[in-house]
């Protein structure tokens, strides 16, 4: 049974959730699927490398996760996006279609820190491109898994009020422009979860995920959401697909 996580309220409606490296369960078959190997057919050499990376993960990660609950409004006369807090977020129907029935938005951030990224860069510089690549894959898997844990936790927390949650949506995906990150971050406390934005709206540490989860009585989580999109090489889609196999 998964251990119960805890949260602390740092500001009004803003929570930091404590997630530990031991909460992340690495599944090598799923990681193999993300790379492209189906049915556990990853060459043993690469599997050994992944084992070594996973063994080092506890000393290479610093997980921070949190969210803020804000009012969400969808106006039928302004269908090209949503109002969250005091900002209008421009989104396509692929996102608004799922979020428009929500009453609230959980703006979330999650990171595993920068140590895995730095390790990968160091390996690349030393010419060990394969290990560097696998470190990147494991790190991406870890941050997605940590975000899954946060996502589920938010779901469990709001369930107490009779609310449901939607899938999560991130700037940069589902045709939601990456520069909308600036608005998203402006709704959160400065350096929330130790994550900052670059001028080009990218998060630092790199292995971080930001986004929105719709919350409300009339919303639902959709397992087959990615079927609506044609971005076959999307990293989030690959992660979700690996989980369904």
């Amino acid at each position: 049974m998964r251990k119960k996580l805890s949260q602390i309220e740092t500001e009004e409606n803003t929570f930091e959730v404590s997630i530990s490296y031991s909460d992340i369960k690495f599944d090598k078959n799923n990681i193999g699927e993300i790379i492209g190997y189906s049915d556990g057919k990853m060459p043993i050499h690469f599997e050994d490398m992944i084992n070594k990376i996973i063994a080092k993960f506890p000393e290479k990660c610093e997980i921070h996760a949190g969210y803020k609950l804000l009012d969400l409004q969808y106006l039928p006369n302004k269908i090209d996006g949503l109002f969250i807090g005091n900002h209008f977020f421009k989104m396509e129907n692929i996102v608004t279609g799922q979020l428009k029935k929500a009453n609230k938005a959980a703006i979330f951030l999650c990171t595993i820190g920068d140590e895995m990224e730095l390790w990968g860069q160091e390996l690349s510089q030393k010419g060990d491109s394969v290990l560097a690549y696998l470190v990147d894959i494991v790190a991406s898997y870890a941050v997605e898994s940590a975000t899954d844990i946060l996502h589920n936790y938010i779901g469990e927390t709001v369930k107490e009020f009779g609310w449901n949650i939607t899938n999560r949506y991130s700037p940069g995906y589902c045709n939601w422009l990456v520069n909308e990150q600036q608005k998203l971050f402006s709704l959160l406390p400065k350096n929330f979860c130790n994550i900052t934005l670059t001028d080009s709206s990218l998060m630092m540490p790199i292995k971080s995920i930001s986004g929105i989860i719709g919350v409300g009585r009339n919303v639902k989580f959709s397992i087959y959401f990615c079927d609506k999109c044609n971005a076959n090489d999307c990293t989030h889609r690959k992660y979700l697909l690996s989980k369904t196999k």
Binding site: I35, V130, Y133
Partner: peptide, 17 residues
């Protein structure tokens, strides 16, 4: 053709280097 994946390609590139 998806017969090999990124790790094999990187190993080949390393041998080439």
């Amino acid at each position: 053709r998806n017969e090999v994946f990124v790790p094999e390609l990187l190993m080949a590139a390393k041998a080439m280097t």
